[in-house]
Simulated assay, not measured.
Amino acid sequence: MVTLIPMDGAPAGKAGPASVAIRPAREDEVEALRRIERSAAQAFRLVEAFSWIATGEVQSATLHLDLIGRGTNWVATADGDHPVGFLSAEIAGPELHIVEISVDHLHQGFGIGRKLIAHAVGEAQARGLDAVTLTTFRTIPWNCPFYERLGFRTLDEADLSPRLTAVLDEEAAHGLARDTRCAMRLTLPAE
């Protein structure tokens, strides 16, 4: 399924794509998706405590391929069919868990991330899932506050499922301190 979304509300003075299509990612796009994630990570150069992320590892090709095979890796394309962003997710029980969302640095600020989230939420609803979850940085403006504006709520430690606790623990083992991270959940309306 391809969703064609007109781009409106672009930042003043920035010319973004006229429209963005969201569709399932293809196997031949894996390296393009990895480049997009590397480009998106450049925003972390501005945050001293997390600047190392700009040169860190990105999602593996193996994981991209696995999620493409499961139908839970979507790409945002512009200018024809040129990938400019992606959202990788996995189904975990009754929830869709966002593993990674990245928008190419030059295409940030045009609502592409919001559109990818909306697409993932729609997919979760179509699959009859209960919620969409993710983990992110607590204080970085384009992370936790961004997701809160989209309806996600930050989970307290007591509200974490064993799965989300394990995700946060795994992230901590890879250098993302637990006190800088949070898990978030968007409960989907029951049908």
Rank of each mutant, 00 (worst) to 15 (best):
E29S: 05
R153T: 07
L129V: 11
L155F: 03
P24F: 04
G93Y: 09
I91K: 14
L96R: 01
L129E: 09
T62Q: 12
S161N: 05
K14D: 12
E31W: 14
T72M: 09
A15F: 13
A18L: 12
A118V: 07
G69C: 07
L150K: 02
L4W: 13
A76C: 11
E123Q: 12
L65A: 14
L63G: 04
Q59L: 15
L96A: 06
L63Q: 14
A183V: 02
H64D: 07
E157I: 01
E171T: 04
V84N: 02
H119W: 15
T72R: 05
W52K: 12
A124W: 01
A131W: 05
T165R: 15
T154I: 13
D169K: 13
A158C: 06
L155W: 00
S51T: 08
I68T: 07
R35Q: 14
G85W: 00
P17H: 09
H105L: 14
F86T: 02
P24K: 06
P162Q: 08
V84L: 02
S19L: 14
G71R: 11
A25S: 13
L134W: 01
R149P: 01
I91R: 15
L155Y: 00
G113D: 01
N73S: 15
R70D: 13
D169E: 14
R26P: 09
A173K: 12
L155G: 02
R181Y: 03
L129D: 07
L134T: 03
A172W: 03
S39N: 07
Q108Y: 13
L150D: 01
I98C: 07
D179Q: 13
E148Y: 04
I140W: 02
F110Y: 12
A124N: 05
I112T: 03
V167K: 02
A120F: 07
V30I: 08
A41W: 02
D169A: 09
R163I: 10
E90R: 15
D81G: 08
T187D: 15
V167T: 04
C182G: 03
A43P: 03
A25K: 02
A92L: 08
I98V: 13
T62L: 11
F137Q: 00
A41T: 04
S19Y: 14
T133F: 03
E29T: 06
R114D: 10
S161T: 13
A92S: 10
V103M: 05
G13E: 11
A25Q: 01
Q125V: 13
E95C: 11
A183S: 07
T72N: 07
Q125G: 12
T165I: 11
E100F: 03
K115I: 07
E170C: 08
G16Y: 00
A18G: 11
G175I: 09
F86V: 04
M184A: 03
C144R: 05
